[in-house]
Write a protein that binds this DNA or RNA. Structure first.
Length: 493
RNA sequence: GUCCCGUUCGUCUAGUGGCCUAGGACAUCGGCCUUUCACGCCGGUAACACGGGUUCGAUUCCCGUACGGGACGCCA
């Protein structure tokens, strides 16, 4: 699980020289669609400016971090084409750096030891809530430390940062505009836990500095952490990065995306037959636009996306639009590109060894007819089975049982007699049969379609005949002829 | 409760004081194309949260209200 790469040289100084962003997930679960969007924005923004996209796994919570989650995040990012330029780095490898920073702060009198117990703190918070004021640490140990009270021996303690109590902390957010917090709203955050482990806010600041991060792109749920982190940068004497806080992605009911809204792993979208570029395309349009363009290729996104153009309000995840965009990318894709995925999804339905040549050949017929690869596999399933019997009930009733028998048989004969199984010949045979019996194409096409596919829906009937091949076409038509004959006898009785 | 952020058609968005009787897209409804289904094409319904300012003029600027979201951990 350890990253093998060492940390880069400390960031030199000029924030605008080279953009370095990081995506910093905590491995406590899979990569869901909201996290994927954050990663995408980071990735895209660095592409345009030729910057560096870094992946940093924030596993300072050893209790909840798992290797499975790390793997799932890596695989999800890879599927979307969002592989990092650097990393993954693991915060658990950098503990010494964090503790060193905390030690320095302590030495310089910018941090202090706090001996308050969790019970004391809980009580305090409860009181504050009762008084309807913002729950926060009241700094009692800070006062003690300032008064020079000696440390009690053998008592567990945490290290807290000494937050400025006056003034205002403000920054120009690349997305949100100016944001400011009166420092009196902030409390003294814990830097090091009583078990000696560093906390998130410390680790983030030390790493962002050591990794030379110039621009922090993250969800707006981190806005309230920003002033604290800025104070830490300043206390350490480090330059503060730029920030861009993205509006959150919400579920259909308008609240933060969660499992009940389908905030499933991005890999679930692969399973459901979506194309990674389509997912990216959908996600990039949530909060960002480029004129009136809806459809983007991966490279267009990479050329045009600018985090400063991202809107400020939260968006709701809309599956219908994702489907439409995916359908578009399905149609635009080269059939060769779709082939491996379609083979996979056919296998999922039990079609384990179709002729890849044939699968490749039918793809163009289904590109305009399927919005996902799963749908494509469903719709072309009939090509690969031994028999389409029994016919779909409604299709049989409406289009097959009422078929004109003589023309149907004539077509079967005429197709059987074809010297070559070619589109032109098939088309001609079909049209001649129809004309000879004074029918419309549809009157014969529908029963034939049912016989060939078992349903009333398919690509054009000539194409189906041709692509299905002589052998399967004729045997299915014969099967149909037999059924038609039986049905007719019964009617005669 | 406190602090922070947000608010244009059902949804995603365009719009930065007059070009807006608010544009596009998805969804939806109707039509065309047609051998079915899609695709495609044409058309319809549908929005500036509310109230005050500022201004000759506000969707655009300011204030307030309402509503929504986020944060308030020895989680990240």
């Amino acid at each position: 699980m350890r990253g093998t790469q060492g940390l880069p040289e400390p960031f030199a100084g000029d924030l605008d020289m080279t953009v370095r962003t990081r995506f910093a997930p905590s491995p406590t679960g899979f990569l869901h669609i909201g996290g994927a969007r954050t990663a995408l924005f980071c990735y895209l923004h660095t592409r345009r400016v030729g910057g560096t996209f870094i992946l940093r796994v924030e596993d300072t919570d050893r209790e909840r971090s798992t290797q499975e989650a790390v793997d799932a995040i890596l695989e999800g990012l890879h599927w979307l084409g969002l592989d990092p330029d650097e990393g993954p780095y693991f915060q658990s490898d950098n503990t010494a750096h964090y503790l060193e920073a905390a030690r320095r702060l302590l030495e310089e009198g910018k941090a202090y030891r706090c001996y308050c117990s969790r019970e004391t703190l809980d009580e305090l918070r409860e009181q504050q809530r009762a008084q309807q004021i913002k729950p926060r640490y009241d700094g009692r140990c800070r006062a003690l430390a300032a008064a020079g009270t000696p440390f009690p021996d053998g008592q567990p303690y945490v290290i807290r940062f000494q937050t400025p109590t006056t003034g205002v902390t403000a920054w120009e957010d690349q997305i949100q505009g100016t944001i400011q917090f009166p420092n009196e709203e902030l409390d003294d955050l814990v830097l090091v836990r009583s078990d000696g482990a560093p906390t998130y806010n410390l680790a983030v600041v030390v790493d962002d500095h050591n990794m030379g991060i110039t621009l922090v792109i993250r969800g707006e749920d981190h806005i309230s952490n920003t002033p604290r982190q800025m104070h830490l940068f300043q206390a350490m004497g480090w330059p503060v990065p730029h920030y861009a806080h993205m509006p959150l992605l919400h579920g259909a009911d308008g609240s933060k995306l969660s499992k009940r809204h389908g905030a499933v792993s991005v890999l679930q979208y692969r399973q459901e037959g979506f194309l990674p570029t389509a997912v990216n395309n959908y996600l990039v349009r949530l909060g960002w636009s480029h004129g009136e363009q809806e459809i983007f290729t991966q490279s267009e996104m990479e050329q045009w996306f600018d985090v400063r153009e991202v809107g400020r309000s939260a968006a709701i995840f809309d599956l219908a639009k994702l489907m439409w965009i995916n359908g578009h990318h399905m149609r635009a894709a080269h059939p060769d590109q779709l082939l491996p995925d379609l083979l996979f999804h056919l296998a999922q339905r039990g079609i384990t060894d179709p002729d890849p040549q044939q699968v490749r050949a039918i793809i163009p017929e289904f590109q305009p007819r399927a919005k996902t690869l799963v749908e494509m596999a469903e719709k072309c399933h009939f090509f690969f089975v031994d028999s389409v019997l029994p016919y779909e009930e409604k299709a049989a009733q409406k289009h097959f049982l009422t078929a004109p028998v003589a023309p149907y048989r004539a077509l079967l004969e005429s197709l059987t007699a074809l010297p070559e199984w070619e589109m032109a010949a098939i088309t001609q045979a079909f049209q001649q049969t129809v004309a000879a019996h004074g029918l419309t194409v549809g009157q014969l096409a529908q029963p034939v379609r049912v016989a060939l596919t078992g349903t009333s829906v398919s690509p054009g009937i000539y194409e189906v005949l041709y692509l299905l091949g002589r052998e399967k076409s004729l045997s299915r038509l014969q099967e149909g002829a037999r059924l038609l004959g039986n049905a007719q006898e019964e009617n005669a009785r």
